[in-house]
Amino acid sequence: MAAAPLLVVEDLKTHFFTRRGVTKAVDGVSFTLHAGETLALVGESGSGKSVTCLSLVRLVPEPAGRIVGGRVLLEGEDLLTKSPGEMRRVRGKKIAMVLQDPMTSLNPALTIGTQVSEVVRLHQGLRGGALRERVLSALRRLRISAADTRLGQYPHQFSGGMRQRVSSAIGLSCEPRLLIADEPTTSLDVTIQAQYLELLKEVQAAAGVAIILVTHDFGIVAAIADRVAVMYAGRIVEMGTTLEVFNNPSHPYTRALLRCLPDVGLGRQQLVEIGGQPPDLSRLPAGCPFAPRCPERQSICEEQSPPTVSVGDGHLAECWATKAVGSQQ
């Protein structure tokens, strides 16, 4: 692609320093994202998806968690070197985030109106009637009916699906360049899920916002993602366009994940357990972290970290067993 990428993440490392040792929750993640593009982040529980997302906005739980290395370039500016004040002007304005549980992510003591308008007032500097108009249009864009009467209501008066739309309306109210959605539909009913994702796609098409979508659901990936990144033990082990990864999974872990699905693209199959235990992130083995569970394990896998292999146009895998196609990156 010709245009400069919106987001470039290079070798991002986020570790947790606990009494039991150092947990390498994110350990060298790199990817790029273009405006208007949707990247799905998949992987087992504990593989570091949420921590990656929080690292992008520098809200890793302190004091245990720290970003210990890498760069996060948003429109060419490194977010990791910004001051706290500058960072606050990025959050909510350029990067918005929606959390998993819509029941708990809105403040129960404040009205919806307050919660939407505070962010618009802060980032857009709007007041009075203009503010109100903007708040209403933000809500309407997410198809929240009777928006003006709803302004005075409290979160508990909304259903789960409605709340997730309100959160998204808050996120999108200031025209961010990037929306990070961390499992936004996991706690919603199937039909509500589908509605919500449709809406998201629609809004994305209209606003040109890029989306990082964390999910466990390959159905969702197939439905809305342009590209997929598969995470394992704090690293992206395979990344490529959705079509490429589904048709030509090039990491044994991805293949294991996909094999667990009876019929990809149909239904919302959760990732079924694959054999073996997820690794202990504070005591990673030398070599490939997936080696102990890998059916295609070779002796080298347990000794040295695997190389990044290019298996197609922009399709990368981190594995000793995978044969490179074309030139290596």
Partner: peptide
């Protein structure tokens, strides 16, 4: 709580 996290995510 999540809503405090969300409030921080808004850039408040």
């Amino acid at each position: 709580s999540d809503y405090i996290k969300f409030a921080r995510l808004k850039g408040l």
